[in-house]
Design a protein around this nucleic acid. Sequence first.
DNA 1: AGACGATACGCAAGTTGATTGCGCAAGTCA
DNA 2: TGACTTGCGCAATCAACTTGCGTATCGTCT
Lengths: 148, 148
Amino acid sequence: MPRRSLIAEEVLEIMRRPARHCWTLDELHDDLTRQGLAPDPSSVFRAVCGLERSGTVVRVPLGDGRAHYEVASEHHDHLVCTTCGRMEPLACSIVADLASRVRAWSGFLVSGHQLVLSGTCGICADDAHGTSQRGRRRSTAQAGKNGR
Amino acid sequence: MPRRSLIAEEVLEIMRRPARHCWTLDELHDDLTRQGLAPDPSSVFRAVCGLERSGTVVRVPLGDGRAHYEVASEHHDHLVCTTCGRMEPLACSIVADLASRVRAWSGFLVSGHQLVLSGTCGICADDAHGTSQRGRRRSTAQAGKNGR
DNA sequence: AGACGATACGCAAGTTGATTGCGCAAGTCA
DNA sequence: TGACTTGCGCAATCAACTTGCGTATCGTCT
């Protein structure tokens, strides 16, 4: 039996929380630190690596030059709100027929895809219009985080 | 008048060649070196930065942790062959109706997207099957270039 | 033509995020 | 309990990108 790793367990529990959908190593490390554990970044990295190796979490290339991780589940795509920075999963069935269309179109055999949609999430759109009479949940939404 | 930059001009000319569709800084630097110029990598970086700032080229986040650049044109998406490493542009109209579907589906206002399809290109699929009744249109496939 | 200011570019160093080596401590198994 | 394995902190390394600085060169102005 593999020896249990405290950090890996905590990481997994953090990642299973619905508050957020996708984590960078940094964010995980911050969360762990906030919880009282103050692990070394390398330990977080190793924990996530282990989880990835075991197939529990997957790495999501979001195109911002950092590694993002999420718990493994049905393949899905991602919506990134450019206003609040939140990320939402997007049922991938919505692009399911793409493969066959592409194949017919160019002979390319699609075996996987990575789609990231950016724009404004419902909440932020409401805010912008001032219509916002709604219980705006907005997690720790750290805004921005653009530019490298 | 801005002073002309030899490197930027060469970079642009390389990127306009049809042989390839998407370049990393390294690849550009290699090509330039092969041409006899042997610029400093930082100069290539600055040249590309300038071109990007002027809107002549755009950075394409391909999710492999490196910066890829291509000449700016109509927005399009990308097909990456996992066998030969080639990258092809994919007319983006093929995912054009996605935005409205997503909006209806989740209230998310899509303003942009980045889609990378991976799989096997027609050539590699033919090769694998030996069936090679290739009539498939295709440009100059240069192989290799996987791995990090 | 010569002076001058701005820019390109090479060199070297710095930054950032990811990854690895090493050694100690703690857990597991026999 | 002793040997072996594994988790984890610390520090170092790596890769890709980015920046600072000094010099060479260009374009313009007089």
